[in-house]
């Protein structure tokens, strides 16, 4: 059985699914991730599904479960890179992926996790911050 690698980048675990997963592979990934979150103490998980050409209800449920598990373990999960055709199909299938946060790409996903962590840690927004942040994030 193939395994999906889990990479640690800074405070974030990055999972890039590059294969057509069997259900067993998906379940194993779910278990691997829970262990790695605890072992590394990471507070963010990014699951990159750019390479997935379909997401069916099983994989959808796996994504939801990972999001819930990581929440319990104090980590934020963001699913990134869903293809348009996959999103259209999921809507038709009736799968809403409740409770999952999504972003267009890995970069946006990291921003989303950082923003959420800042919120959690209670940083306040001051006008001066807006100025410097806009300058820092514009290309």
């Amino acid at each position: 059985m193939e395994r999906v690698p889990v990479l640690k980048i800074g405070d974030i675990l990055l999972v890039s699914i590059q294969i057509d997963m069997s259900d067993q592979t998906a379940v194993t990934l779910q278990e691997d991730l829970a262990e790695r979150i605890v072992a590394t103490g990471c507070h963010g998980v990014i699951i990159d599904i750019t390479a997935l050409d379909i997401v069916d209800s099983f994989v959808g449920r796996m994504l939801s479960t990972i999001a819930s598990i990581s929440k319990v373990l104090d980590a934020e999960t963001v699913v990134v890179g869903m293809r348009p055709a996959v999103a259209i199909t999921l809507v038709e299938l009736g799968l809403s992926l409740n409770g999952i946060r999504t972003a267009l790409n890995v970069e946006r996903g990291m921003e989303l996790i950082a923003a959420t962590r800042d919120d959690d840690l209670g940083y306040d927004d001051t006008p001066g911050d807006v100025e410097s942040a806009t300058a820092a994030t514009s290309p």
Partner: peptide
């Protein structure tokens, strides 16, 4: 997927068909 591509279904239709096939095969 292979057959859907050969028949020239659109990308969205391919995705829908393969997803349905995955559900029903399971």
């Amino acid at each position: 997927r292979t057959v859907a591509v050969a028949v020239k279904l659109s990308l969205v239709d391919q995705t829908k068909l393969v997803t349905a096939a995955s559900e029903l095969a399971r």
